[in-house]
Amino acid sequence: MRPSRAVAVHATLGAVSVVMLVPFYWVLKTSLTGENIFQYPPALLPRVMHPFYYVDVWYYIPFVRYVINSVIVSVIVVAANLVCNALAAYALTLRFRGKRAIVALLLSCMLIPFQATIIPAYLITKELHLLNSHLGLALPLCSTIVCIFVFKASFDAVPRSLIDAARIDGLAEWRIILHVMLPLSTSAVATTVILSFIWSWNSFLWPLIVIRNQEMQTLPLGLSTFLSYMENTTGALYAFCIMVLVPGVALFLLEQRRFIDGLTSGATKG
């Protein structure tokens, strides 16, 4: 490539990167310096570091409570997704009557977004007396069709002969899944863990409907409640945002390759 073109490409991508990063920079800067939000003109560069707003968050809201709730729900969701989807996918690799119909049903159900089923989901959760509980929060997210197909694709790639050998050696079906299939599908496992974690961690509409008291709120819900009684001119709100965003960003930076692959394969493998 000619140098002049490389410079143009860098300039364009650099400008886009700035647009993508400015919101983060702005929030991070304000939350770390504890400066007055009403100050005009606002300081573009940070002057003094001060954890003032973070201390505020600590005293204003039950942050630990929110984190614990979010973590409990995410753990239930991730574990349930691994178990349910791996089992369902293994069943789909076997031959049985009506398999085509089941696959067709699953594929057509993928078109129905969760948001279109919130009313029946709410009524069912209510009948089960699971409103306002961790299990109720986790239940609708416990199996996702996309992940079933991610697992199925991976299981289909395992050589038949290997499975037959395991069967001849007298392995029970569940041990075939555990000791043959899953160790050979680490990337499907990673995809499922990443997708289900992100979905449950960020989930907002469902907790908004199901949760009634502050004790049970998860992080996104706590964030929106905080917004509703503090309004958006409180620095602590942004410190709270940063604290909520950190786990996601950290995970992304650590496992970038897997993360991008996982999130996009969740969309493409369907």
């Binding site: 983060f24 907002f204 909520v244 996601g248 960003v249």
Partner: peptide, 20 residues
């Protein structure tokens, strides 16, 4: 990575930041 990073973030937090 920079262009992708906004996608997996919690939308509620993103909304609050843009509101501001």
């Amino acid at each position: 990575a920079i262009i992708f990073i906004s996608y997996p973030l919690m939308t509620v937090a993103v909304g609050i930041i843009w509101r501001w």
